[in-house]
Design a protein around this nucleic acid. Structure first.
Length: 466
RNA sequence: UCCCCGGUAGCUCAGUUGGUUAGAGCGGGUGACUGUUAAUCACUAGGUCGUUGGUUCGAGUCCAUCCCGGGGAGCCA
C-alpha cells in the first residue's frame, strides 16, 4: 500500500474509515493506562503532526511502542478516524506501527520536546528541521521561491542561470572568494615573483560570483525581461544578523525601462510574493505570528495594501535634517543613509515602505546611470518597516562614452569588462534592474531576527560546518 | 573589523564580599495515574564550571589570552 502525507491525512481529502499508511518522525509519545499510546508524528508536509493511537494489543506494544522517544522514525498503518480528543480533527487508529530507526541515546538527542534557543539549534543544523520553527521556515522558503519564479514566468521574464565562477568583480563590492586549483604550498611564480595564474585551472584569476547582474545584462539586451535567482558569495568579514557569506539573490533586469519602471516592478513583485506566502502558508505564518513576531501577518498585509512611498534622496536628507531627531550620524548630502536614517524614514516619518531614489554619484557603483544634473545616479533602495533596506537597484548606464569614463575613473580593468562594454556598443538601450537578498526576504516574512536561521546551512566568517 | 554583554548538567538558567560536598526547571530513566496532546505526580541518574596561562593558603567567582555565541555599528543584499 502506498503511504499518504500527513498534510493529506489532516486536511480532509481522505474519507474517514480509509486505511492509510503514514511515515514520519515521532515528536512525543504519551501512554494511557486505558490501553493505548498516543504518538505524535510529523513528516514535514505541513505544520501539524498527526496523532497515531496505538492500542496495547499490538504485538510490539511493550517491546517497541512504549519505548518510542522524540526523533524515532515510524511507519504507521491504520484507519483514519475523526479524533475523540481535542486538538486535532483526524487521527490514525493504528493496526501496525513499525519502527524504522531508533534514537541511539534519547538522553542526548538534541531535539527534545521543549524549547531550544536558536543559537543552540544552529549547532545542530542537520537536525533543526525537525522543529516547528525550522520546518515552517523551510516551507515558507520553498513557497516564496516558487512564487518568485511564478511571478516572473507569468510576467514574461526568463530565468537566466548566470555563472557561479567569474573573473569579474561585479561592483568592486567587497572581497571575493578565490577559486583556484593551484597548490597553495607550492605556488607557481612568474619571473617578477608574482603568482602565475596562467597555470591555474582557468588560465587566469577566478572567484565566486558576488552578483549575476553584469552577466544577466547581456541576456536582458536580447531577451528583454530576465532575472537571476541563485547563490552568491561575499568574503566580507561581516558579523551581523543580516549578513551571510553565501546567500541567494534575485536580480531582475528589464530592457527599455527607467528607474520608475524598476520601482513599479519592485513594488508589484514584493506584494505578489508576500501575498503568495500568506495564501499558501497560513499555518506556518500563524505560528510565526504566535511565537516569533506578533505582527508577522499584519505587517505583510499592510505592505500588500499600502502604496510604496517614493522620495528623492535629496528630499530624504531634508526630511532627516528637519526631523528634530538626534542621529548618531548627521544626515548630509553626499553621505550614504545610515541604518538609523533608513529606519526613521520607513518606520517613523512615512510608516510605509519607501523607495529612495537618485543617490549621489560618489557613493554608488560605476554601472549606475548618471543623471542630467551630473551629481546623482539613477539608483534606488527599497526600505521596509522593521528591516530597513531590502532591495537595491538602479537604471544602468547605457551610454558607451559615459560608462567608459566612469570605469576609467575608478581604475577598472577594461580588458576584463570588454564584453560588458560591448553591450553598449551593439544596440544599447535604457535598462534597469535590482537585487534582492532572498534570505533577507525570508527574514522579513517570518520575523526571524537572525539571517543565519532562515538558510538551511549558514556560512559566516569562521564557520562552515555541515 | 570596532563597541558592549555572555559561555556552569542533554537543553534553559541560578550560583552572595573568592571559602570546604555545584543548584533548579525542562529533557532522560523507573514507577503511579490518565482519550492524552508543552499531560500530571513521585523517585532517580547526570557537571574537568569554554581554552590556555596567571594571582591566591584557596578560583565557577579576580586578571590576561584565545575560541565561541548574542546585541549594536561599519560594509552591504
Amino acid at each position: 500500500m502506498s503511504s499518504v502525507s500527513i498534510k493529506r491525512a489532516l486536511n480532509g481529502e481522505i474519507p474517514t474509515g480509509s486505511t492509510v499508511t503514514i511515515q514520519g518522525w515521532v515528536r512525543t509519545r504519551r501512554d494511557s493506562k486505558a490501553g493505548f499510546s498516543f504518538i505524535s508524528v510529523h513528516d514535514g508536509s505541513c505544520f501539524d503532526p498527526i496523532q497515531v493511537v496505538a492500542p496495547a494489543d499490538l504485538s510490539n506494544y511493550g517491546e517497541d511502542i512504549q519505548k518510542l522517544t522524540s526523533g524515532c522514525s515510524v511507519v504507521c498503518t491504520g484507519e483514519l478516524v475523526e479524533s475523540m480528543g481535542r486538538g486535532q480533527k483526524f487521527e490514525v487508529q493504528a493496526s501496525n506501527v513499525e519502527v524504522m530507526g531508533w534514537v541511539e541515546d534519547p538522553d542526548t538527542y538534541p531535539i527534545q520536546p521543549k524549547r531550544h534557543s536558536f543559537e543552540f539549534l544552529r549547532d545542530v543544523a542537520h537536525l533543526r528541521p525537525r522543529t516547528n520553527t525550522f520546518s515552517a521556515i523551510a516551507r515558507v522558503r520553498h513557497v516564496a521561491a516558487q512564487a518568485i519564479h511564478r511571478y516572473f514566468h507569468e510576467h514574461g521574464y526568463f530565468w537566466i542561470n548566470t555563472p557561479i565562477i567569474t573573473a569579474s568583480d561585479a561592483e568592486g563590492a567587497g572581497d571575493m572568494f578565490r577559486v583556484s586549483t593551484l597548490d597553495l604550498a607550492n605556488l607557481p611564480r612568474t619571473e617578477n615573483g608574482n603568482i602565475d595564474f596562467e597555470q591555474d585551472f582557468f588560465g587566469r584569476e577566478t572567484f565566486l560570483t558576488v552578483s549575476g547582474q553584469l552577466n544577466v545584462e547581456g541576456y536582458c539586451l536580447a531577451m528583454s525581461n530576465v532575472y537571476t535567482f541563485g547563490p552568491t558569495f561575499r568574503a566580507e568579514n561581516s558579523n551581523t544578523s543580516r549578513h551571510l557569506a553565501e546567500f541567494w539573490m534575485i536580480e531582475p533586469e528589464i530592457a527599455f525601462a527607467d528607474l520608475d519602471d524598476l520601482a513599479d516592478l519592485a513594488e508589484d513583485f514584493l506584494k505578489y510574493v508576500f501575498k503568495a506566502v500568506l495564501d499558501e502558508c497560513p499555518e506556518d505564518m500563524a505560528f510565526f505570528a504566535k511565537r516569533i513576531e506578533p505582527t508577522a501577518i499584519e505587517r505583510l498585509e499592510n505592505l500588500i495594501n499600502a502604496p510604496f512611498v517614493r522620495v528623492d534622496y535629496v528630499d530624504a536628507i531634508e526630511i532627516l535634517k528637519n526631523s528634530g531627531r538626534k542621529f548618531e550620524f548627521k544626515p548630509e548630502w553626499g553621505l550614504d543613509l545610515q541604518t538609523e536614517h533608513e529606519r526613521y524614514l520607513t518606520e517613523q516619518h512615512f510608516n510605509a515602505p519607501v523607495v529612495v531614489k537618485n543617490y549621489p554619484t560618489e557613493i554608488k557603483a560605476f554601472y549606475m546611470r548618471l543623471s542630467d544634473d551630473g551629481k546623482t545616479v539613477a539608483a534606488m533602495d527599497v526600505l521596509a518597516p522593521g528591516i530597513g533596506e531590502i532591495i537595491g537597484g538602479s537604471q544602468r548606464e547605457e551610454r558607451l562614452d559615459i560608462l567608459q569614463k566612469r570605469m576609467n575613473d575608478q581604475g577598472m580593468d577594461a580588458d576584463t569588462y570588454s564584453w560588458y562594454i560591448d553591450l553598449r556598443r551593439y544596440g544599447t538601450v535604457p535598462h534597469a534592474g535590482f537585487g534582492l537578498g532572498f534570505e533577507r526576504l525570508i527574514t522579513y516574512i517570518t520575523g526571524m531576527s537572525n539571517i543565519r536561521d532562515v538558510i538551511p546551512y549558514p556560512r559566516v566568517p569562521g564557520r562552515a560546518d555541515f
